[in-house]
């Protein structure tokens, strides 16, 4: 009975907490699916040795409590800092941060940009839904100009922050931006960030407009929106959401490589300042 076969992603999920609390049609599901497909194709059977760290926001609920692995649900904006602590304390763990634009680009941007500068050995997935979805759709640093939200009732007037381009300008090893219509590219990027480019700072931004506060405001259904995104993001690299694609792929030594080199010098040289 094929219809009774378990979906492959169930082995990565805490089944007892399903269904997810996301709005019907929410693109968080696409991000989850891409991530799980990447794990499946990498041959990961059980997420032992992976630690998922998230902050506050809708996308922060993707790992906590849903993913069956060690998950840490931290304060608003502090996921990258906690993840840094975990990675440095246990360098053999794979630490993945999932967060939204409010979490990583607004309140937590300082930690994000400094982790990127350090080339900290983390994978950060930014689910950019363009608003603060969990708290009723207030404007965020990535809200498109002109969009009406509860905090910009006459249309957003602050210029947009291009997070992926900013991070690409730092010392980060791998930076990519995809929208939810680029499913295979997104999955392949996550795969690359966990295999070929498995050291240093890896940053993947996913354009996933909030179904409730962005798509509905535009007067569209989720189906119409994904069709539009397919048109915009599959054939162009320049989109209203910024450059789409792999913005940077390098294999420089990560923070830990450099730190262990520093320690070697310290133990050989001895004295210090």
């Amino acid at each position: 009975m094929r219809c009774l076969r378990k979906h492959f992603s169930r082995k990565y999920l805490r089944e007892e907490v399903l269904p997810t609390p996301f709005c019907p049609g929410c693109f968080n599901g696409v991000v989850m699916n891409a991530m799980f497909k990447a794990f499946e194709e990498l041959g990961v059977e059980r997420l032992k040795g992976y630690v998922f760290v998230s902050g506050i926001g809708c996308s922060s609920w993707i790992p906590s409590p849903h993913i069956k692995a060690d998950t840490i649900h931290t304060l608003h904006g502090r996921a990258v800092a906690v993840a840094t602590g975990v990675k440095l304390a246990k360098p053999n763990l794979n630490v993945i941060v999932i967060g939204g634009d409010g979490d990583l680009a607004a309140i937590g941007f300082n930690h994000l940009v400094h982790a990127a500068r350090r080339n900290m050995d983390l994978l950060v997935i930014l689910v950019n839904n363009l608003v603060y979805g969990m708290t009723r759709g207030q404007a965020s640093p990535t809200t498109p100009e002109g969009m009406r939200t509860v905090t910009t009732p006459y249309g957003a007037y602050e210029p947009v922050m291009d997070v992926a381009e900013l991070i690409a300008r730092t010392n980060a090893n791998y930076v990519a931006r995809w929208c939810v219509a680029n499913f295979n590219q997104l999955k392949n990027s996550i795969k690359e960030a966990l295999s070929k480019h498995s050291r240093g700072f890896r940053f993947i931004e996913v354009i996933a407009p909030c179904i409730t506060y962005v798509v509905r405001y535009e007067g569209k259904t989720p189906g119409q929106k994904i069709k539009e995104l397919m048109k915009v993001c599959r054939s162009n690299t320049e989109t209203p959401y910024g450059r789409i694609g792999i913005l940077k792929a390098e294999n420089k030594p990560g923070y830990l490589d450099r730190y262990f080199e520093y320690v070697r010098k310290a133990t050989e040289g001895g004295k210090g300042e």
Partner: peptide
Amino acid sequence: IQSEDELAAINMVVGAALAG
């Protein structure tokens, strides 16, 4: 690690403590 601010410092410390 010299953190970027005190918010990072305490949260890094919490992460490391949780890691054991």
